[in-house]
Nucleic acid binder design. Structure first.
Length: 264
DNA sequence: TACCACCCAAACTC
DNA sequence: GGAGTTTGGGTGGT
């Protein structure tokens, strides 16, 4: 039986990192219900969504051993639709060698499209490839600022993954590059198709796994924001598995704060 | 039959 | 020197 994140709620008002955050709801991995998109009532958000994000939004806490995430619907459906369309026009994805990866000596096309944007001069190395940040676009700045106002964290870089349908996917990995500011969470904004997202503890992977720890599964909805707080990326791998029934695209933006070696 | 979970392959980086 | 990392394909379960 698949175990999805459920909806046990307890009110609390402060984030674990000590930053000021809006009132949120706490959610533990204790029952078998998915996070439901219907929980979000666009009526609550309609008037303020376009201009102001500092209002409280209903956060859900996702916790397990060494895993600490916050999930919320950041944008109304209408605004998420608009932002999705704008990104489809603005974002330029990698092609050629940058869109390939070498695995076990074989070269494959990456099963999704990728792009990197951020502050001028920033670079980010992952999967052995160094990437330069393109200048922020209007839509990306808007989304970045919305995330900042909501979370209290600032970001200087965004990695964009576009999944054309449920065939496009991403294998299990951790976002634990040394360039990332360890005090800043990774903020993941989803637009388009809702997709399953799976966390697996590093000690519970493979046949010879040392421990039995249940994976944490959630569904990332259109317009949602998932904050991965420290130390989540130390202990937990995450993946976006193939879902053949999904026929429409999804754009995922992971906002990060990068500290270049010269700044350290 | 379709979908999904899980495991494994080897060359390379850090 | 050793641990970790990438994706596609094969296998088995539902």
């Amino acid at each position: 039986m698949e175990k999805f994140v459920g909806q046990k709620r307890e009110e609390h008002s402060a984030a674990n990192d000590g930053s000021t955050k809006p009132l949120r709801k706490k959610l533990k991995v204790e029952n078998d219900e998915k996070v439901k998109e219907e929980e979000f009532d666009p009526e609550d958000d309609e008037d303020t969504a376009l201009a102001e994000f500092s209002h409280p939004i209903p956060w859900q806490k996702i916790e397990a051993e060494g895993l600490d995430c916050d999930y919320a619907l950041l944008f109304s459906k209408e605004e998420a639709d608009r932002l999705f369309r704008q990104l489809e026009e603005e974002v330029v994805y990698s092609t050629g060698q940058e869109a390939k990866v070498q695995v076990f000596g074989k070269v494959y096309n990456i099963p999704r499209k990728q792009a990197t944007y951020g502050d001028e001069g920033l670079t980010y190395t992952y999967s052995g490839v160094k990437r330069f940040a393109c200048p922020w676009t209007q839509a990306l700045e808007y989304i970045r600022d919305a995330v900042t106002k909501t979370t209290g964290h600032t970001f200087n870089f965004v990695l964009i993954n576009r999944y054309k349908d449920g065939q496009d996917h991403m294998g299990e990995h951790r976002d634990d590059e040394r360039e990332l500011d360890p005090l800043c969470p990774i903020a993941s904004v989803s637009l388009g198709a809702a997709r399953d997202f799976i966390f697996r503890h590093r000690d519970a992977r493979g046949k010879e796994s040392s421990r039995q720890i249940e994976p944490v599964k959630l569904e990332l909805a259109h317009g949602s924001l998932l904050l991965m707080n420290s130390p989540t990326n130390t202990f937990w791998y995450h993946s976006l598995p193939v879902r053949k029934k999904v026929l429409v695209p999804r754009i995922n933006l992971t906002f990060r704060r990068i500290v270049q070696p010269s700044q350290k």
